[in-house]
Structures are given as C-alpha cells and as structure tokens.
Design a protein around this nucleic acid. Structure first.
Lengths: 302, 302
DNA sequence: CTCTATTGATAGGTATAGGCTATCGTTTCA
DNA sequence: TGAAACGATAGCCTATACCTATCAATAGAG
C-alpha cells in the first residue's frame, strides 16, 4: 500500500468525483480509477459505490477514509517536523564541557549563542574528560569541550583557543616580590592539584615537570574553586586556567594572581565530536560564537 | 514518500543494524540502505548517524520515527477495519420498509437474522415508498422492502413473496352470511383506505376496480391499525395484507377476517436496492432469512 | 602489524508499478 | 435521437525499487 493511494482516496472521498479528484492530485482520471481499484482489491472491500452519475462512500469506506485521514495527517506532521529541523543549526545540541572550563566559558557564550542562533537549543552538561568521551560515543551528547587531544580515539575536533595557565599564590608567599615568573620557578613550588580524573591536574604536572615527591597528593581538591580556597588559606600555590581568572572570584579572595613568562604554559581547548556527526554546521556555528566572545587573556586559533 | 519506506525506517530504528533490518523486511541490505537514504533526502534531514560499527538515531530521527510509528499504526488499524468488513455480510445494513409491512414482517425476521448472521448489524426504518426510494438514491438506506415495482426507476430488486389481501368487515355486515367472497363482491363495498401516499391504498383501488365516487376519501386513515379500528366500529370494510392478519390484533377486536376467493388479490413484496450496491450477498442473505420465516399465508417466490 | 570478518555504501542491470493517451459503455439531458 | 458527462478499460512507456556483485572502512584476532 502507498501513501499516494491514500491521498487519492481522500481526494475522491472529498470531491465525490473521479475526474475532479484526479485534477486535484495532478494525475489523469484513469490513473486515479486504477489506483482506487487497486486499493479496494488490497483491502478486500468496496470503498465507493459508483455509477455514472454519483460516487458515494460505502460504510466501510467511511471507516477506512477516517483512518487514511489520520495517517496522512501524521505524515504531514512528520514532514513539518523535518522542515523545522532542516536547518542544521536548529534543534537540540547537547554540549558537554570539562568542569575546569564549563563554569567560566559557558556563561560567556550562552547569551550570544541565543542571539545569533535562536533556533538552536543548547543543552549543557559538566563532566570530566573520560565521561564526556563515553557520552559522545553513546550519543548521549553531541559535542564536548575538552582540553586534551581526542583525535587518536577516533573523534573529530575543531581547535578553538590556547588558554594560558596563571599562577595563584597566597599574599605572603616568597614569589610576591618576584617580578617575572618562569616555568623553572614553578618546579620549586608546592603545587596543589585537582583529583587526577581532571585533565588539568595532569597538565600542570606536565607543564611544571613536577616529579613524584613534589606532588601534594594529600590535598587534591575536587573543584577549582575549592582549590583556590586552599591557596587563599596559604596552603600552597597552583596553576589555574586563564578563563577562571577572568570569571572567577579572585578579587577579595586574598590570593595573588600572576601571569607566567611563557607561551608554553597553555592548554588547548577544542570541540570534540563523533566524526560522522551530521550537523557539522552547528558545531562550526558554536565554535564561531565561542571564538568571538573570549576575553583577550586567551589566544584564539582562528 | 512511501509507507514501505516508513516500515524500513522503523526496522532500522529498532534493530540499529541495516543488515538485520533488511532481513526483517525481507529485502536486501542495499535496498534498505538506498531507501533510507532516499527518505533522508526527501525529508531534508539526517535520520541516522552511522559508521561501520553502530547505527544511532539523530534527535530529528527520533521525532520522525515517532510520527512514522503512529502512521504505520493507523495503517494497521485500517487494514484491520477492512478485514473485519471483508465479509460482505458484516457491517451495517440499513433496511427500510413500508409502514403496512414493517410492523408485521420485521418482528418475524429480527431474531432469525441475528442468529444466522450475527456479524450483520441491521438497522430498520419505516417510511412510505416515495421516501424510501429517495433515501435509497441518497445512500441513506441500503435496501427497501417495497410492494411496488421500482426497476423502472433504475433500482435493482429481488422478488420475495406475494402477500394476499384479506377482507375485514364489521361483525354485523351483510357479507357475514356469505361463504365465498370474490373480487366482484368487493366493488359493491364501502372501502376504507389509507392516505394516498401509502401504496396499499392505490393497490386496493386497483384490485377492487373502485371508481371515483365509491372511494371514501373523507375517512382515509393514516395507519393500518387505525383503519382496523374504523372497521371494528362499523364504519366500513377494507382489505389488509395477510401478514397484518397474522401479526395484527384481529382476535378480540370484533372485526371479521375473510380470505378472498382469488389468487389475483395480492401485492408482491420485494427487496429494492441501488443496482451498484456492493454487498449483494448481504441482500441475498436477508432475502433468504425473510423467505424462511414467513407464515404460509403468503406465497414465496423462491 | 597484517589478515580477516563485519558493516554500510555504491554500481549496474532488471522487473514491476504507476503513469499516460485513446477509447469504450452507460447514463442523462436537450 | 444526438451530445455530453463520467467512470472503466486497453495498451504502452518510464521511473523506481529491487536484486547481485563489489567496494571501503573499521575492529578484532593471530
């Protein structure tokens, strides 16, 4: 059975005239006649009682037409739904971000994204890298904002920007009097780190070339804001990403924020997605909005 | 768009595997692939995000599949409806009968019809010949039980039986002492007649060869039972159809019921219907039930 | 790291379904 | 009686949905 046949059926039922119904369907009258006949044969019932003067629905015909009407209505609704979503920018875009980026970046882009692409429905979530990668694979999110390379795991990526690490230390720290801080200086410090499922902690270890003994494992905090509180209380130093300096509550917290004298101490933030994700344009739009709303403490890559 | 495509869509959405879905639909995998691709092109959206290891619905796909599911469900319901009505004996059969037949015949056949064809849903109505013919033409009823020939008006008919006219007269009437009553006797009587829209009144005029002056127009009653009351009250005689003698309240009403000495004084009862009425079998079934439940006061024609 | 199995996509050929024009048979109306 | 209107039928043609064979990409085993 064919949807076209059902449309023919509805046309004849409404106009009660094969010729007019055929015109209405943009086919010839014989085509319509034969298709109605075929439909009647398939269903095993007579739908119309016809003679050369009138065409009338049989009682069964009435019932069948009612079903056909509902069916066609469903298809129309389906096409309508498709039309709304034809714009690849439209519809849900489930965005995951790592916790050391999410609270500082997403507020910057939420309003601009709404303004630029009102038809887009972004849904944000907040998890560590490994979880985001799993959710990507399971189609539970569409794109992840990560600070690590995931191309080796079969994902695609759009590099966005390099986010420098800044040093924070307590006010009375020895570094207070030092004008310029280099990477070498960092090796000497007592670095506080996030728990190891955060990519940030691994990256700090790498950047500072911290060796085993120097790591302050006993104090690994679970959130960046908690870590800052530790520093504020004089328990040590740490590196934090530039965006958290901009958006975080540094002022008044008593910690000293210091830029580093090195272009190397950065993490690269990228959009990561399944390579066959069909709405690539939505990702590019997202990337564009992110890049245009960043503070100049980070280095854009486009 | 095609219903087949929607079924393919549902299969892939459910099994998340093109090959298995193809087997489930009894087509080859390339067929399924190309049809899904075609559907995606027609709708202008990507329904599945696929790679060589997994097939997953996109958010739009989810929405579309929901519509498709409802659509297919409608079609299934439609086929089911058709199946139920495939039996030409099933479903509504709207039966009209003339008022001088209806109250005496229909009670005789109602239960037998229910027993023999429980799937049939007979709906009875009661109107004069002209109205019944109009309703037949307008598809408001499916078949009429008439006492007149309607083949000249483009209807089809199944003759059922010849129903003799019986004479009824008051107890103290001169005919009381006469053993055999012939048609000639009737011409001398003061005949009471129904109003002229009833075919019975025309037929009595014809049978008795009543001429203008003898007709008792001022007393034309509207119903047969009323007419019998007139006779009972000694206001005249009349002819009534045999079934009304059988089923009517003759006993105790004080009227005398007399058979006529003539095979001519009958009216022929037939089923009348539109010639293209599709459920001819239902009519034949009805005819059969009627014929098998008649009293022997009438002469069956089959 | 190579080999193989699995999976969806593609290519090319064929058969059927659905389309058309022309015409018929019947009925209605002038 | 002739013309017009209408649905059905016949015969032909094309688009499309189907098939088999094969490709390309990936994952997992040895």
């Amino acid at each position: 059975m064919n949807l076209r046949d059902l449309k023919y059926l509805l046309a004849v039922a409404e106009l009660k005239h094969f010729g007019k119904a055929a015109g209405h369907c943009f086919v010839s009258q014989p085509t319509l006649s034969s298709q109605i006949k075929k439909l009647e044969e398939q269903l095993g019932v007579t739908l119309f009682e016809r003679n050369n003067r009138s065409v009338e629905l049989t009682p069964v015909g009435e019932a069948i037409v009612e079903h056909a009407r509902l069916c066609i209505a469903q298809v129309d609704a389906m096409v309508q739904t498709a039309k709304i979503h034809q714009d690849p920018l439209a519809g849900q875009l489930r965005i995951g971000a790592i916790p050391t980026l999410s609270p500082y970046l997403l507020p910057l882009i939420y309003q601009p994204l709404k303004s630029a692409y009102p038809q887009m429905n972004p849904i944000f979530s907040d998890e560590v890298t490994q979880m985001l990668e799993m959710r990507l694979t399971n189609h539970e999110i569409d794109v992840a904002l990560l600070a690590t390379d995931a191309t080796g795991k079969g994902f695609g990526e759009i590099p966005l920007f390099d986010e420098p690490f800044w040093l924070i230390h307590p006010p009375n720290h020895p570094l207070h009097t030092q004008d310029v801080i280099t990477l070498t200086d960092l090796r000497e410090l007592d670095m506080l780190l996030l728990s190891e499922e955060h990519c940030l902690s691994r990256q700090i270890v790498e950047v500072c070339q911290l060796d085993g003994p120097r790591r302050r494992d006993e104090l690994r905090a679970f959130g960046l804001e908690t870590l800052i509180q530790f520093v504020s209380n004089g328990l040590g130093c740490t590196l934090i990403p530039a965006l958290s300096v901009h958006g975080g509550r540094m002022t008044g917290s008593g910690v000293i924020t210091r830029q580093l004298d090195s272009g190397e101490a950065v993490r690269r933030i990228r959009l990561v997605f399944r390579p066959n994700f069909p709405r690539r344009h939505a990702l590019e739009a997202l990337a564009e909005v992110i890049l245009q709303n960043l503070p100049n403490t980070v280095r854009c890559l486009a």
